[in-house]
Design a protein around this nucleic acid. Sequence first.
DNA 1: AGATTGATCCAT
DNA 2: TGGATCAATCTG
Length: 175
Amino acid sequence: MKKAPLSFFNRPALIVAKELLGCFLATKTADGIERYMITETEAYIGPHDQASHAFKGRTKRTEVMYQASGTIYVYLIYGMYNMLNIVTDEKDYPAAVLIRAVEHNGLPITGPGRVAKHLHIDRMVNAKLLGKEANLWVELPAEPIKRKVIKTPRIGIDYAGPIWSQKQYRFLLTK
DNA sequence: AGATTGATCCAT
DNA sequence: TGGATCAATCTG
């Protein structure tokens, strides 16, 4: 299995979000390398995206979204759940892809909170670089995926207004 | 449908 | 400095 180069992420978030489907999140454990196939993503595409945290500008929390592509962005929501994102695009351009669901040995893990919990991902890895500074990286599938891709509006962003809340920036693999 | 939970951001 | 808000999930 081939590790995704950091250049994979140095592209528009919409492209990365689509291409991450079928890729694997990989982490090293005592039992070896565990791989989780990514089955659902969402793109947050820039400073003008009203659904994005970066819409309010550069703050202590959003600073990581402006860092180099391949940087990990993890934040806490509702005081309970960690959300795993991967920064995309050029440095100083705030964009990221949220990992919303994976599959492990054919078993689905749906919902971003459950994904992070299952992989033991928390804010300790926030602002770390995939593979270099964190025990987490992405691997590319050996063969192109055969499953179909569905697009829908993003989840839980009604605050983003009528235009941005309806953009079809969520991508899922069908069964 | 309602509770949960705490970091973050902005207005008072 | 307080208080609303939140890229969600669990239980009834």
